[in-house]
Structures are given as structure tokens and as C-alpha cells.
Design a protein around this nucleic acid. Structure first.
Lengths: 156, 156
DNA sequence: GAATGGATTGACTTTCTTTGACCAATACAG
DNA sequence: CTGTATTGGTCAAAGAAAGTCAATCCATTC
């Protein structure tokens, strides 16, 4: 069995039905598995990324930690579908607004969230000198990121 | 638990709904927590700064003291201050996250809004090939745009 | 058996915390 | 007034995590 796989399953045993959230110390974990601390980052990057349905936060310095939150849960299936399938590499402003409006209608996001997202992706907010293609790539990424965050809120 | 965090929460228990104001002795507090007196200054600087919604004044010499005042400001006031003065033409990710976290602490934005904003402005979301300066300009614009959107909601 | 791509490691970096040495202001005693 | 004891302030260095990245290793594929 691969080290990365061991670490992955170990973390997943900590993320049971009960707790969708674990907090751990990078160094301790590395010690436990007898590997380089950075190996933990590798596992997080390849198995616990947002694309895999997880969010991570961390803090350095004395008393630092790494927290992992599982976000893929029932209510957020639709949102995850959008993130993984529907939205591609680019997203125009019109498309974004249409999507947001639909999500609001379907009550998958609140009106506040909808207007927050709209203002973040608006042409006005993005008025910096870069090509349109890049703006649309940015929109796509930001949209996915925000939807994941909402999916996280909806977790059971 | 981190020492700084302990000191922070200790002070916050003294700042209840009743009293928006505490007065304490730096040396006594340091003694109580068994740490260097300057540790207190560190906590004040990192957790009780104006950005965090607190003002501090102090006096040296015999009978010296440190006074901490929780400052009350209307939600819109604070948000508009951020939009018009605090946030300039550029905003780094670290700064943005710090600001958002503070706004959440001060309950000027909901935890959902906070995580929505964070994810929109995250490095991950903005991973397209443009210069950092432009990303920071974008962040500033998006942040202001989102804050105004929230201010608008609060007004209604 | 070479090539490819994921896995592993370790050196270096960044961020946050804690401490201590030295500095500055204030009160009080003489 | 002046000197000294009593505070609090500043800053830089050390310490304690976590992050990044490039080099190497290894297993699978062709």
C-alpha cells in the first residue's frame, strides 16, 4: 500500500458520519507515518482538494494546525454538479448572472448570496486591463469556488 | 491552546455586554499568565487593534494602566469606511482574508457571506496567468463591490 | 527497457508566537 | 526641583509551526 493512500484512509477514518471535520498537527501526523511533513501537504493537495469535496484551512506558528472539512453532502449535489460538470473553464458575465438567477429561483442560494456573487463577478468589479478570455476564466474559477463554499454551508 | 488566545479570551470575558471597557495592569496580567509583559502588547496589537473594533489607551509610571474600549460603529459606517478609506487600489489575499475574518467577528457579515467572499478572492479561485499587481487590483475592486452589496442589504 | 507520471523527500521560505533587553513616561519622596 | 522607583512601549531575535518547490524515486505502460 502506498504511503499517500495510507495517510488518506487514516484521515478518512477520522472523518466519520459524525464529524465532517478534523483538526490535526502536520508534524505529528508525519511523525506517526514516519515521513516528511511535506508529504502531508501532498496528500491534502491530491486527495483533499476542493475538487474532491474537501476544504482545508491551516495556521502556522506555535500551536498551528490543519483542519479538513468534508463538504460533499446531500443538499449540495446540484451545486457540486455545477462545479464539476456544468461550468467549464470560462464563464461570461451574462452566463454567470443567468446561473446565479436560476440558483436563487431554486432557492439553492439566498438572495443575499446571489447579490454578493453578482457584485463580485460584475464587469464593474472586474474593470482591470486584462483580456476578456482571462476575465472569463477568472469568473469560472471564482464562481466554482463560491459555489463550493455555499455547498459547505449546506453540509449536514 | 495558544497563550495569545488565552489572554485574548480572558480579556474578552471582561468586556461583557455591560462594560464596553476594561482597565488592566500589564505587569499583573503578564504575571497571571506567567509570560513576558510584552506578550500583552502583542495580543493587543494582533487582536485588539482598531481593525478589530477596539481602541486602547495606556499610561506608564506609578498607577499605570492599559484601557481597552470596544468601539461601536454602525454596520454601514464601518463597511463604507472600508470601501472608501481602508481598502485602496490593491488588496493582497492575506489582507483580504484578515479583513473578512474581522468583519465576521464583528458580525457585520454572516459566516456564510464571509466564506463566500473568501472563496471568491482566494488564490485558488484567481489562478489565472496575470501579474500579482493586477490580481490585487481585482481583489480590491471585488471586495469593495461585495461590501457595498452587503451595505445595501443592511440599509434596507 | 525506456518513458511517463504519480509519490517521496529535504532544503528553504513564510507566518505567527514568545521572550528579553533596552527605552520612555509618570509619580512620589526628599 | 531632582532622583528614583514604577510602570508601560518597542524592537529584534529566537522558536514553533506550516508551505513551497525542485530533485529524486518508483511503478506502470508501451
Amino acid at each position: 500500500m502506498r504511503l499517500s493512500d495510507s495517510i488518506e484512509s487514516f484521515i478518512k477514518t477520522l472523518l466519520t458520519d459524525e464529524s465532517a471535520e478534523v483538526e490535526l498537527k502536520r508534524n505529528e501526523l508525519a511523525e506517526y507515518f514516519g515521513c516528511a511533513p511535506s508529504q502531508i501537504n501532498y496528500v491534502l493537495a491530491t486527495r483533499f482538494s476542493p475538487d474532491h469535496g474537501y476544504l482545508t484551512e491551516s495556521r502556522r506558528g506555535g500551536g498551528g494546525y490543519i483542519r479538513i472539512v468534508r463538504v460533499v453532502e446531500s443538499g449540495s449535489q446540484r451545486l457540486m454538479y455545477l462545479v464539476n460538470e456544468r461550468i467549464g473553464e470560462e464563464l461570461s458575465e451574462e452566463e454567470a448572472l443567468r446561473l446565479i438567477s436560476q440558483l436563487k429561483d431554486q432557492q439553492l442560494v439566498t438572495p443575499q448570496e446571489a447579490s454578493l456573487m453578482s457584485s463580485a463577478l460584475s464587469t464593474r468589479a472586474m474593470a482591470v486591463p486584462i483580456p476578456d478570455a482571462l476575465k472569463n476564466a477568472l469568473r469560472a474559477r471564482m464562481m466554482k469556488s463560491m459555489l463550493m463554499s455555499i455547498a459547505a454551508r449546506n453540509r449536514g
